[in-house]
Design a protein around this nucleic acid. Structure first.
Lengths: 343, 343
DNA sequence: TTGTATGCGTTATCAC
DNA sequence: GTGATAACGCATACAA
């Protein structure tokens, strides 16, 4: 390994001077010295040892990302985080806890030990044990996507209710009045919020909430298909369906086909969660996209901003809006055929 | 920040003793001392400063991952890498170069500067500039998925040709004789290999290669659809299609629908590249899955193994086999209807 | 069995 | 302007 001393020796100067050019302290330095040193650095292909720098400067220029699951959301958000980090000269350490709360804690501790300058966290346990630990670390952090316990911390989230509301209002705007919703069991905030958004949209437009149009499915293969087929074959069938999850949406599309209904001509469909395949499906799916990349960027930039001004003010919440991706799986009600062919 | 000195002071011992328990050197140590120290560590909630440890030990217990693009392959492979790292007490730094060769080099340099113990690299430029740089670093590295230049280095790749061959042989095994292949322009090894596998499978079974069944499409929206529809409407249409790319596969499925053909009853389809949606599509797609997670694990374990035995032997190639995921988008030829209804 | 002293590669505070 | 020199927090060779 080649060190700052080697450079100093080759250039015939002291290492303090070398350190100065390394850190861009050219204020009181002769041109000659600067050039000599830069040449030596070049010649030796010298790269400063960031570990030693970190030890001395008490900052690593690395931030940590601790997520419960590198799922499709995070694999995209990660790119945003990484992008923002690189743009600002920060490295990025990532760790996944695979839904194991123990590992979540362990990963957090590991990050602290590695002396990361800041942390982006998407905790899996909803207890505020994580928040406490994070606070004890005494390093800046932000939650992203998911939060933990009583969140008095900075966080970046989407407005799920608003997203769902917008989706359903879009359908209402197309003239639909009987709109069904399919959703997984209401075990998480996200699911509850998506249903809540559906209800709010209806209420906002003085439409009654018909429980027979709210279908809750357990996760599992295909059990949604049959139910949706039945729903679509009933005399007072919905003219549109808001599907709160991509898996369910695929079932809904399949059910429509089985019921002999064309999407969007006979029945409109709007889904939640965008994927790279949504636009490629047949029909291209209108969905509510969670801007994962953007959220990653926001989380990172919020964190880096905190690193600049060490004095933390009051918690800041960045609300990112989901975006309705209008493709053509939903169409105006008037286009609908009066008597759709039902097999 | 609380240091080893604080612990030593609280326990009333020297810091070397503390260091010993930190590193598990209990060989010559009294029970009492050990317990005293462990209590002090506990009390102070002391966490060793990994940066200082790294500087001293000349190892960071961190490996770096440098990829050109955190695409769907890598977002899955990343999990494998991360998993293996965590299991072995290593941290993971990731960086993406967004297909910019400059950034690729920059990221590599950054990793070197951060003193990572090893590197997993998926370079974007096919020149051996990357390899040279990597070698100059003098730290262990392995290529994964993609390689660079004259690869005399360890690498983990899939046997693309074998995967494609297996897919087509599967179709042949089902009785198909007229098998079409759709592929993007042959600009990359991967694409060429997938086509090559197709050809080899045919040759292996003494089937002639019919150029009219080899369709090369430029990337772009839907231009594949029309061509495939025509292909499927021709009198001597293929009874099966091997689609070498997921995007193309979606087009193929759509084309089949437009041609009034049922998959798999009227025409069989096998795709390349598995996604989490493939099994959910209608019909569930038979594909050749690249075991991304597994490749990540292999790459990491190969690297970590090299970190153990610093003496590197001759380059090692880990060939991971793609796996044919048999679902039901392909069916035996005998089941096919004699006169499929063609619109 | 435990403590002392040195140095890892760098930055920063002082002299000069 | 430039160069000694002392830290940063820790591990380890050596002394005790």
């Amino acid at each position: 390994m080649i060190t700052i001393d080697d450079v100093a020796k080759l250039a015939g100067v002291s290492k303090s001077s070398v350190s100065r050019v390394l850190n861009g302290n050219f204020e009181y330095m002769s041109e000659g010295m600067r050039q000599k040193i830069e040449k030596a650095i070049e010649q030796l292909d010298y790269r400063p040892n960031a570990v030693a720098q970190s030890l001395k400067k008490k900052e690593t220029k690395v931030i940590g990302l601790v997520v419960g699951d590198l799922n499709s959301f995070w694999s995209e958000a990660l790119r945003g985080v990484q992008d923002e980090c690189m743009r600002n000269g920060y490295g990025l350490m990532v760790s996944e806890s695979a839904w194991d709360p123990e590992r979540d804690i362990a990963n957090l501790n590991m990050m602290k030990s590695k002396q990361v300058d800041g942390l982006i966290v998407s905790p899996i346990s909803q207890t505020n044990k994580v928040t406490e630990l994070l606070n004890s670390f005494n390093i800046p952090f932000v939650f992203c996507d998911s939060t933990s316990g009583d969140i008095l911390a900075d966080h970046v989230v989407t407005d799920t209710i608003a997203g769902a509301t917008e989706a359903v209002e879009y359908l209402i705007g197309l003239g639909h009045r009987r709109i069904a919703v399919v959703v997984f069991p209401l075990e998480t905030d996200v699911r509850r919020d998506r249903l809540e958004g559906y209800k709010r949209a209806l209420m906002k437009h003085d439409l009654s909430i018909d429980d027979s149009l709210i279908k809750i499915f357990k996760a599992g293969k295909g059990n949604a298909v049959d139910t949706v087929v039945q729903l679509l074959k009933s005399p007072d069938r919905p003219t549109a369906i808001f599907s709160t999850n991509m898996h369910l949406t695929l079932d809904v599309l399949k059910a429509a086909r089985l019921a002999g209904l064309n999407v969007p001509r006979d029945v409109s469909v709007v889904g939640y969660d965008d994927t790279e395949w949504a636009p490629l499906l047949d029909p291209p799916l209108t969905t509510v996209a969670v801007p994962a990349f953007q959220m990653g960027v926001k989380a990172a930039s919020l964190l880096l901003q905190k690193l600049q001004v060490k004095k933390s003010k009051k918690p800041k919440t960045v609300q990112v809006m989901p975006k309705l991706m209008i493709r053509n799986s939903a169409s105006p009600l008037s286009v609908m055929r009066e008597n759709p062919s039902i097999n």
